[in-house]
Write a protein that binds this DNA or RNA. Structure first.
Lengths: 139, 139
DNA sequence: TCAATAGTTTAGAACAATTATAATGTAGAA
DNA sequence: TTCTACATTATAATTGTTCTAAACTATTGA
Protein backbone atom coordinates (compact mmCIF):
# COMPACT_ATOMS: atom_id res chain seq x y z
CA UNK A 1 0.00 0.00 0.00
CA UNK A 2 2.29 2.74 -1.21
CA UNK A 3 1.74 5.88 -3.20
CA UNK A 4 3.36 6.62 -6.50
CA UNK A 5 6.31 8.55 -5.18
CA UNK A 6 7.13 5.64 -2.93
CA UNK A 7 7.06 3.28 -5.90
CA UNK A 8 9.33 5.70 -7.71
CA UNK A 9 11.80 5.62 -4.84
CA UNK A 10 11.60 1.88 -4.61
CA UNK A 11 12.22 1.42 -8.32
CA UNK A 12 15.05 3.91 -8.41
CA UNK A 13 16.73 2.43 -5.37
CA UNK A 14 16.79 -0.96 -7.03
CA UNK A 15 18.26 0.40 -10.21
CA UNK A 16 15.11 0.45 -12.30
CA UNK A 17 14.10 3.66 -13.96
CA UNK A 18 10.71 4.70 -12.69
CA UNK A 19 8.90 4.87 -15.98
CA UNK A 20 5.18 5.56 -16.26
CA UNK A 21 4.61 1.93 -17.18
CA UNK A 22 6.52 0.48 -14.26
CA UNK A 23 4.84 2.75 -11.75
CA UNK A 24 1.44 1.84 -13.16
CA UNK A 25 2.26 -1.87 -12.89
CA UNK A 26 3.42 -1.33 -9.29
CA UNK A 27 0.07 0.26 -8.51
CA UNK A 28 -1.82 -2.65 -10.01
CA UNK A 29 0.31 -5.24 -8.27
CA UNK A 30 1.04 -3.73 -4.90
CA UNK A 31 -1.71 -1.25 -4.12
CA UNK A 32 -3.67 -3.74 -2.11
CA UNK A 33 -3.53 -5.30 1.30
CA UNK A 34 -3.85 -8.75 -0.10
CA UNK A 35 -1.24 -10.57 -2.08
CA UNK A 36 -2.41 -12.34 -5.16
CA UNK A 37 -1.54 -14.75 -7.90
CA UNK A 38 -1.70 -13.90 -11.53
CA UNK A 39 -0.71 -14.84 -15.01
CA UNK A 40 0.65 -12.32 -17.48
CA UNK A 41 -2.68 -12.40 -19.28
CA UNK A 42 -4.64 -11.63 -16.14
CA UNK A 43 -2.26 -8.80 -15.33
CA UNK A 44 -2.68 -7.28 -18.78
CA UNK A 45 -6.45 -7.38 -18.36
CA UNK A 46 -6.26 -5.84 -14.91
CA UNK A 47 -4.04 -3.05 -16.19
CA UNK A 48 -6.39 -2.19 -19.02
CA UNK A 49 -9.30 -2.16 -16.58
CA UNK A 50 -7.57 0.28 -14.25
CA UNK A 51 -5.89 2.48 -16.81
CA UNK A 52 -6.89 3.90 -20.14
CA UNK A 53 -3.35 4.17 -21.38
CA UNK A 54 -2.42 0.70 -22.56
CA UNK A 55 0.93 -0.88 -21.80
CA UNK A 56 2.32 -3.14 -24.47
CA UNK A 57 2.48 -6.86 -23.85
CA UNK A 58 6.27 -6.88 -24.24
CA UNK A 59 6.59 -4.28 -21.50
CA UNK A 60 4.41 -6.29 -19.16
CA UNK A 61 6.63 -9.32 -19.74
CA UNK A 62 9.78 -7.25 -19.29
CA UNK A 63 8.51 -5.63 -16.13
CA UNK A 64 7.31 -8.81 -14.51
CA UNK A 65 10.66 -10.40 -15.23
CA UNK A 66 12.64 -7.53 -13.83
CA UNK A 67 10.41 -7.38 -10.75
CA UNK A 68 10.96 -11.09 -10.30
CA UNK A 69 14.71 -10.62 -10.62
CA UNK A 70 14.60 -7.85 -8.01
CA UNK A 71 12.60 -10.07 -5.70
CA UNK A 72 9.32 -8.16 -5.82
CA UNK A 73 7.55 -11.13 -7.34
CA UNK A 74 7.87 -14.88 -7.09
CA UNK A 75 7.15 -17.39 -9.79
CA UNK A 76 5.02 -20.27 -8.59
CA UNK A 77 6.09 -23.70 -9.75
CA UNK A 78 3.06 -25.46 -11.15
CA UNK A 79 2.50 -27.08 -14.47
CA UNK A 80 0.25 -24.97 -16.46
CA UNK A 81 0.18 -23.58 -19.92
CA UNK A 82 0.95 -20.21 -18.38
CA UNK A 83 3.38 -19.00 -15.71
CA UNK A 84 1.91 -17.94 -12.41
CA UNK A 85 3.39 -15.15 -10.35
CA UNK A 86 2.79 -14.17 -6.77
CA UNK A 87 3.03 -10.80 -5.10
CA UNK A 88 3.60 -12.60 -1.84
CA UNK A 89 7.35 -12.98 -1.79
CA UNK A 90 7.53 -14.24 1.74
CA UNK A 91 8.21 -17.88 2.25
CA UNK A 92 4.96 -19.76 1.84
CA UNK A 93 3.29 -22.58 -0.01
CA UNK A 94 0.32 -23.33 -2.21
CA UNK A 95 -2.77 -25.38 -2.70
CA UNK A 96 -3.56 -25.95 -6.33
CA UNK A 97 -7.08 -26.92 -7.24
CA UNK A 98 -6.59 -28.58 -10.58
CA UNK A 99 -10.26 -28.78 -11.44
CA UNK A 100 -10.76 -25.04 -11.11
CA UNK A 101 -7.16 -24.06 -11.94
CA UNK A 102 -7.16 -22.11 -8.71
CA UNK A 103 -4.19 -21.29 -6.52
CA UNK A 104 -4.49 -20.64 -2.79
CA UNK A 105 -1.74 -19.51 -0.43
CA UNK A 106 -0.72 -21.66 2.48
CA UNK A 107 0.89 -19.63 5.17
CA UNK A 108 4.34 -20.76 6.11
CA UNK A 109 3.11 -21.14 9.68
CA UNK A 110 0.54 -23.67 8.50
CA UNK A 111 3.21 -26.01 7.23
CA UNK A 112 5.49 -27.74 9.65
CA UNK A 113 9.12 -27.12 8.67
CA UNK A 114 10.07 -29.47 5.88
CA UNK A 115 13.09 -31.51 6.83
CA UNK A 116 15.21 -32.83 3.95
CA UNK A 117 17.61 -35.56 5.03
CA UNK A 118 19.72 -35.57 1.93
CA UNK A 119 21.78 -33.06 0.01
CA UNK A 120 23.64 -32.55 -3.21
CA UNK A 121 27.39 -31.99 -2.93
CA UNK A 122 28.42 -28.48 -3.88
CA UNK A 123 24.88 -27.17 -3.89
CA UNK A 124 23.02 -25.21 -1.29
CA UNK A 125 19.31 -25.01 -0.81
CA UNK A 126 17.74 -21.88 -2.21
CA UNK A 127 14.11 -22.62 -1.43
CA UNK A 128 11.79 -25.36 -0.30
CA UNK A 129 8.32 -25.11 -1.75
CA UNK A 130 5.35 -27.31 -1.04
CA UNK A 131 2.59 -27.72 -3.59
CA UNK A 132 -0.55 -29.41 -2.32
CA UNK A 133 -2.83 -30.56 -5.08
CA UNK A 134 -6.44 -30.89 -4.06
CA UNK A 135 -9.59 -32.24 -5.64
CA UNK A 136 -13.27 -32.27 -4.83
CA UNK A 137 -14.04 -34.44 -1.83
CA UNK A 138 -16.88 -36.71 -2.88
CA UNK A 139 -16.83 -38.88 0.22
CA UNK B 1 11.44 -54.32 -16.46
CA UNK B 2 8.75 -56.10 -18.44
CA UNK B 3 8.69 -57.72 -21.82
CA UNK B 4 6.43 -56.70 -24.64
CA UNK B 5 3.63 -59.13 -23.91
CA UNK B 6 3.49 -57.82 -20.37
CA UNK B 7 3.20 -54.27 -21.68
CA UNK B 8 0.44 -55.46 -23.99
CA UNK B 9 -1.43 -56.92 -21.03
CA UNK B 10 -0.89 -53.82 -18.98
CA UNK B 11 -2.16 -51.55 -21.73
CA UNK B 12 -5.15 -53.72 -22.50
CA UNK B 13 -6.10 -54.05 -18.85
CA UNK B 14 -6.20 -50.29 -18.50
CA UNK B 15 -8.36 -49.90 -21.57
CA UNK B 16 -5.67 -48.75 -23.96
CA UNK B 17 -5.25 -50.64 -27.21
CA UNK B 18 -1.77 -52.07 -27.35
CA UNK B 19 -0.63 -50.49 -30.56
CA UNK B 20 2.92 -50.83 -31.89
CA UNK B 21 3.60 -47.24 -30.94
CA UNK B 22 2.38 -47.55 -27.37
CA UNK B 23 4.31 -50.75 -26.77
CA UNK B 24 7.46 -49.14 -28.17
CA UNK B 25 7.01 -46.14 -25.90
CA UNK B 26 6.50 -48.49 -22.94
CA UNK B 27 9.78 -50.14 -23.76
CA UNK B 28 11.61 -46.86 -23.92
CA UNK B 29 10.06 -45.58 -20.72
CA UNK B 30 9.84 -48.62 -18.51
CA UNK B 31 12.48 -51.10 -19.68
CA UNK B 32 14.97 -49.94 -17.13
CA UNK B 33 15.60 -50.37 -13.46
CA UNK B 34 15.95 -46.67 -12.95
CA UNK B 35 13.19 -44.17 -13.14
CA UNK B 36 13.91 -41.01 -15.04
CA UNK B 37 12.72 -37.55 -15.88
CA UNK B 38 12.12 -36.41 -19.41
CA UNK B 39 10.58 -33.83 -21.64
CA UNK B 40 8.59 -34.77 -24.75
CA UNK B 41 11.52 -33.69 -26.87
CA UNK B 42 13.95 -35.90 -25.04
CA UNK B 43 11.55 -38.81 -25.31
CA UNK B 44 11.20 -38.33 -29.06
CA UNK B 45 14.98 -38.34 -29.40
CA UNK B 46 15.31 -41.46 -27.28
CA UNK B 47 12.66 -43.25 -29.33
CA UNK B 48 14.37 -42.48 -32.60
CA UNK B 49 17.68 -43.68 -31.15
CA UNK B 50 16.22 -47.01 -30.09
CA UNK B 51 13.93 -47.63 -33.03
CA UNK B 52 14.18 -47.11 -36.75
CA UNK B 53 10.45 -46.79 -37.19
CA UNK B 54 9.61 -43.24 -36.24
CA UNK B 55 6.59 -42.35 -34.14
CA UNK B 56 4.92 -39.06 -34.93
CA UNK B 57 5.18 -36.22 -32.49
CA UNK B 58 1.40 -36.09 -32.04
CA UNK B 59 1.36 -39.73 -31.00
CA UNK B 60 4.10 -39.17 -28.46
CA UNK B 61 2.07 -36.34 -26.94
CA UNK B 62 -1.11 -38.40 -26.99
CA UNK B 63 0.58 -41.40 -25.44
CA UNK B 64 2.33 -39.49 -22.70
CA UNK B 65 -0.96 -37.84 -21.80
CA UNK B 66 -2.89 -41.08 -21.69
CA UNK B 67 -0.12 -42.73 -19.67
CA UNK B 68 -0.27 -39.82 -17.27
CA UNK B 69 -4.04 -40.15 -17.02
CA UNK B 70 -3.67 -43.86 -16.28
CA UNK B 71 -1.08 -43.10 -13.62
CA UNK B 72 1.94 -44.59 -15.37
CA UNK B 73 3.63 -41.22 -15.47
CA UNK B 74 3.67 -38.16 -13.27
CA UNK B 75 4.08 -34.61 -14.37
CA UNK B 76 6.61 -32.73 -12.30
CA UNK B 77 5.58 -29.25 -11.21
CA UNK B 78 8.37 -26.89 -12.17
CA UNK B 79 8.30 -23.79 -14.27
CA UNK B 80 10.03 -24.43 -17.47
CA UNK B 81 9.33 -23.84 -21.11
CA UNK B 82 8.71 -27.56 -21.36
CA UNK B 83 6.77 -30.06 -19.28
CA UNK B 84 8.75 -32.61 -17.34
CA UNK B 85 7.47 -36.11 -16.75
CA UNK B 86 8.65 -38.78 -14.39
CA UNK B 87 8.46 -42.55 -14.68
CA UNK B 88 8.67 -42.73 -10.92
CA UNK B 89 5.01 -42.54 -9.93
CA UNK B 90 5.62 -43.35 -6.32
CA UNK B 91 5.34 -40.54 -3.87
CA UNK B 92 8.58 -38.61 -3.89
CA UNK B 93 10.04 -35.16 -4.28
CA UNK B 94 12.59 -33.23 -6.30
CA UNK B 95 15.63 -31.09 -6.24
CA UNK B 96 15.79 -28.68 -9.12
CA UNK B 97 19.11 -27.21 -10.04
CA UNK B 98 18.11 -24.08 -11.86
CA UNK B 99 21.55 -23.29 -13.16
CA UNK B 100 21.88 -26.63 -14.93
CA UNK B 101 18.13 -27.20 -15.45
CA UNK B 102 18.62 -30.54 -13.79
CA UNK B 103 16.06 -32.53 -11.82
CA UNK B 104 17.01 -35.01 -9.11
CA UNK B 105 14.68 -37.32 -7.20
CA UNK B 106 14.39 -37.05 -3.47
CA UNK B 107 13.21 -40.26 -1.96
CA UNK B 108 10.06 -39.94 0.08
CA UNK B 109 11.99 -41.43 3.00
CA UNK B 110 14.44 -38.53 2.83
CA UNK B 111 11.72 -36.01 3.51
CA UNK B 112 10.03 -35.90 6.87
CA UNK B 113 6.26 -36.12 6.42
CA UNK B 114 4.93 -32.72 5.49
CA UNK B 115 2.27 -31.64 7.90
CA UNK B 116 -0.28 -29.15 6.61
CA UNK B 117 -2.29 -27.51 9.36
CA UNK B 118 -4.98 -26.04 7.19
CA UNK B 119 -7.47 -27.31 4.68
CA UNK B 120 -9.94 -26.19 2.08
CA UNK B 121 -13.60 -27.00 2.72
CA UNK B 122 -14.97 -29.56 0.29
CA UNK B 123 -11.57 -30.46 -1.07
CA UNK B 124 -9.36 -33.38 -0.26
CA UNK B 125 -5.63 -33.58 -0.67
CA UNK B 126 -4.51 -35.42 -3.76
CA UNK B 127 -0.78 -35.00 -3.40
CA UNK B 128 1.84 -33.11 -1.47
CA UNK B 129 4.95 -32.37 -3.46
CA UNK B 130 8.11 -30.71 -2.30
CA UNK B 131 10.35 -28.89 -4.73
CA UNK B 132 13.76 -27.95 -3.39
CA UNK B 133 15.56 -25.42 -5.53
CA UNK B 134 19.31 -25.51 -5.20
CA UNK B 135 22.16 -23.37 -6.41
CA UNK B 136 25.94 -23.58 -6.41
CA UNK B 137 27.38 -23.27 -2.94
CA UNK B 138 30.10 -20.65 -3.19
CA UNK B 139 30.75 -20.40 0.51
C1' DT C 1 19.02 24.26 -19.73
C1' DC C 2 20.23 21.22 -23.21
C1' DA C 3 22.28 17.75 -25.60
C1' DA C 4 24.23 13.05 -25.25
C1' DT C 5 23.52 8.39 -23.98
C1' DA C 6 21.99 4.53 -22.00
C1' DG C 7 18.04 2.31 -20.67
C1' DT C 8 12.79 1.56 -22.06
C1' DT C 9 8.83 0.90 -24.61
C1' DT C 10 6.56 -0.59 -28.55
C1' DA C 11 4.28 -3.22 -32.44
C1' DG C 12 4.83 -6.82 -34.71
C1' DA C 13 7.60 -10.70 -36.24
C1' DA C 14 9.56 -14.91 -34.78
C1' DC C 15 9.72 -18.89 -32.08
C1' DA C 16 8.75 -23.09 -29.57
C1' DA C 17 5.75 -26.13 -27.18
C1' DT C 18 1.51 -28.02 -27.56
C1' DT C 19 -3.09 -29.05 -29.50
C1' DA C 20 -6.41 -29.55 -33.30
C1' DT C 21 -7.68 -31.41 -37.80
C1' DA C 22 -9.04 -34.60 -40.93
C1' DA C 23 -7.54 -38.31 -43.62
C1' DT C 24 -5.69 -42.92 -43.30
C1' DG C 25 -4.73 -47.03 -40.74
C1' DT C 26 -5.57 -50.80 -37.41
C1' DA C 27 -7.23 -53.64 -33.30
C1' DG C 28 -10.91 -56.13 -31.62
C1' DA C 29 -15.68 -57.65 -31.79
C1' DA C 30 -19.42 -59.74 -34.24
C1' DT D 1 -13.98 -61.13 -42.98
C1' DT D 2 -16.12 -57.04 -42.21
C1' DC D 3 -17.42 -53.35 -39.42
C1' DT D 4 -16.65 -49.88 -36.10
C1' DA D 5 -14.46 -47.36 -32.85
C1' DC D 6 -10.19 -46.09 -31.61
C1' DA D 7 -5.22 -44.59 -33.08
C1' DT D 8 -1.80 -42.62 -35.83
C1' DT D 9 -0.12 -39.34 -38.89
C1' DA D 10 1.48 -35.07 -41.24
C1' DT D 11 0.49 -30.77 -41.08
C1' DA D 12 -1.90 -26.64 -39.76
C1' DA D 13 -3.30 -23.86 -36.07
C1' DT D 14 -2.87 -22.00 -31.64
C1' DT D 15 -0.81 -20.04 -27.69
C1' DG D 16 2.52 -18.28 -24.45
C1' DT D 17 6.72 -16.07 -24.65
C1' DT D 18 10.87 -13.84 -26.58
C1' DC D 19 13.19 -11.12 -30.11
C1' DT D 20 13.94 -7.08 -33.04
C1' DA D 21 14.80 -2.72 -34.30
C1' DA D 22 12.90 1.70 -34.35
C1' DA D 23 11.03 5.39 -31.54
C1' DC D 24 11.00 7.29 -26.99
C1' DT D 25 12.48 9.05 -22.38
C1' DA D 26 14.92 9.43 -17.84
C1' DT D 27 19.19 10.73 -16.30
C1' DT D 28 23.84 12.74 -16.49
C1' DG D 29 26.92 16.28 -16.88
C1' DA D 30 28.44 20.18 -19.73
Amino acid sequence: MLNNSQYIDKLRSSGLRPTKQRVKICEVLFNTDKTFHFTINELVKKISKVSNHKISLATVYNTVHSFKKKGYLKEIPINSDQSYFDTNTSHHHHFYDESQKNLIDIDDSDVEPVKINTKIPGKKIKSVEVLVKVEDDKS
